[in-house]
Amino acid sequence: MAFEHRLASVLSGAALLSLLGATAFADEAAKLTELSPNGQDACFGRIYDAKHLKAHPEQKVARIFFYYGHDPVSRPNEEPAANAGRSYNGFVTTTVRGAKAPEWAGGWCSHQSEDGASNPIHCGMECDRTLASLKVDDKGRLILSDLQPDIYLDAGSEEELGTTEYDRQALGSRDDNFRLDPMPAATCKAEFARIDPIDPAMGPPLRDRLKPDQTFCYGRDYDAAHFGSHPDQLTQSIRVFRGPVELASFAAGGDLANWPDGADIAVSVTTRQKSGKVTQVYSCQGEADQWRCAASSKMSDFSCDITQKEIFLKRGANGMMMLANPNNSLAIVDFCSQAADGKTKSDDKIYRLEPMPQSACAP
């Protein structure tokens, strides 16, 4: 459930470089007519049968698809609607033998290759890495080459993982120079949808469920039975809410087009050791499928610099809200004390909160 760790890969790719990706697609979409003669999203793919795989034992890839166009990967998420579509313009997904789901990578494709030549089409990734080189043959098939074995691994992973584990996770020595057939765009979208199937129980994103001008209250009160199985938990009750004060703050300076960026939320906690509750305001922004919220000096009960204290909000099943508190960033202890520099105990890291009437979050 430590969903905060998913931010790293998202931020290193589409989220961090989204503006560059948008520019790349706008500048190059009309130029790469080999891939898309009509200017529409284009799909190429191939599924290898058992006979082919038996004849090529060093090939790990059993399914491969290349998609040129708008992002086929991102599901409806928490990022502002104004950022939609600002991502890569070339996407590759492969499924290796025995795998249940594909892996994918994205990049930006253009005629300007690293050596300055006009062909083949070069697709680059972040950190100056290569996604693939592309050519279209006289039958309209896509020749995909320069697919790196570590395309799904971090830079320097061979040294970090060791040779044996690196070879297990990397693509095989014959996983290159693929000849892919043109296919309907819907075929690629269906393939990419296999990566992270949408769970209907999760419902709409928080940014759709919680409107900019809407108050809300989520919380939980823990009983003796719960504490019996979670003896290290300090939290007696918790509330996450937006009330009139938070609504007024967003109305005065927030940008509706970028909701939920800039949204203030308040978190109140009562612990088993204290009779009074502690309330802290956080300022949030949408990133991937969660809200990342940094502690704000507004309405703070603490006097020190708390801006690096963070929590993460994510939709839960059946209307619940999940709150992750990975690094002691919830006001369980005094943010300014030495103890606040330590790690939160495991029983106070993840909260499953249910919707409550607004009166339950009243001061």
Score class of each variant (00 low, 15 high):
residue 27 D to W: 13
residue 141 R to N: 14
residue 332 I to R: 05
residue 333 V to M: 04
residue 165 E to Y: 08
residue 174 R to Q: 15
residue 40 Q to S: 10
residue 93 T to K: 15
residue 345 K to A: 13
residue 253 G to T: 13
residue 80 P to G: 01
residue 29 A to D: 07
residue 340 A to Y: 02
residue 310 E to G: 09
residue 249 S to T: 09
residue 227 F to H: 07
residue 45 G to I: 09
residue 229 S to K: 15
residue 341 D to R: 15
residue 30 A to E: 09
residue 13 G to V: 07
residue 161 L to S: 03
residue 119 N to I: 05
residue 17 L to A: 11
residue 53 L to Q: 06
residue 132 A to W: 06
residue 321 M to A: 06
residue 5 H to L: 04
residue 337 S to M: 11
residue 178 F to M: 06
residue 116 G to C: 04
residue 24 A to E: 06
residue 239 R to Y: 00
residue 355 P to A: 00
residue 268 S to Y: 03
residue 180 L to Q: 12
residue 180 L to T: 10
residue 274 K to T: 12
residue 157 S to E: 10
residue 355 P to Q: 00
residue 350 I to Y: 10
residue 263 A to M: 13
residue 314 K to M: 06
residue 291 W to S: 08
residue 23 T to E: 08
residue 241 F to A: 12
residue 261 D to I: 03
residue 227 F to Y: 06
residue 26 A to L: 13
residue 271 T to E: 02
residue 121 I to M: 14
residue 34 E to I: 03
residue 277 K to A: 14
residue 180 L to I: 01
residue 346 S to K: 11
residue 320 M to F: 12
residue 309 K to Y: 01
residue 195 I to H: 08
residue 14 A to Y: 14
residue 31 K to V: 11
residue 156 G to D: 05
residue 117 A to L: 08
residue 309 K to M: 01
residue 85 G to W: 03
residue 233 Q to L: 02
residue 259 W to A: 11
residue 219 G to V: 04
residue 154 D to H: 13
residue 141 R to W: 06
residue 207 R to C: 02
residue 109 C to P: 04
residue 287 E to F: 09
residue 302 F to R: 04
residue 46 R to C: 07
residue 301 D to C: 02
residue 243 G to H: 05
residue 260 P to D: 01
residue 327 N to G: 09
residue 38 N to Q: 14
residue 146 D to K: 10
residue 309 K to N: 05
residue 52 H to A: 15
residue 304 C to M: 00
residue 87 S to A: 10
residue 97 R to D: 05
residue 361 C to E: 00
residue 151 I to T: 10
residue 282 Y to M: 07
residue 99 A to D: 09
residue 96 V to D: 13
residue 252 A to F: 06
residue 120 P to S: 01
residue 284 C to S: 03
residue 37 P to G: 04
residue 348 D to V: 00
residue 328 N to I: 00
residue 3 F to W: 06
residue 269 V to L: 14
residue 306 I to E: 09
residue 166 Y to F: 15
residue 330 L to I: 02
residue 117 A to F: 08
residue 314 K to W: 04
residue 233 Q to C: 04
residue 23 T to Q: 14
residue 117 A to S: 15
residue 65 F to Y: 15
residue 83 N to P: 04
residue 48 Y to E: 07
residue 170 A to F: 03
residue 186 A to W: 02
residue 200 P to T: 01
residue 171 L to F: 02
residue 100 K to V: 09
residue 19 L to G: 08
residue 175 D to F: 04
residue 246 E to M: 02
residue 5 H to T: 15
residue 196 D to V: 08
residue 130 T to W: 03
residue 67 Y to S: 08
residue 318 N to Y: 10
residue 106 G to M: 07
residue 329 S to K: 02
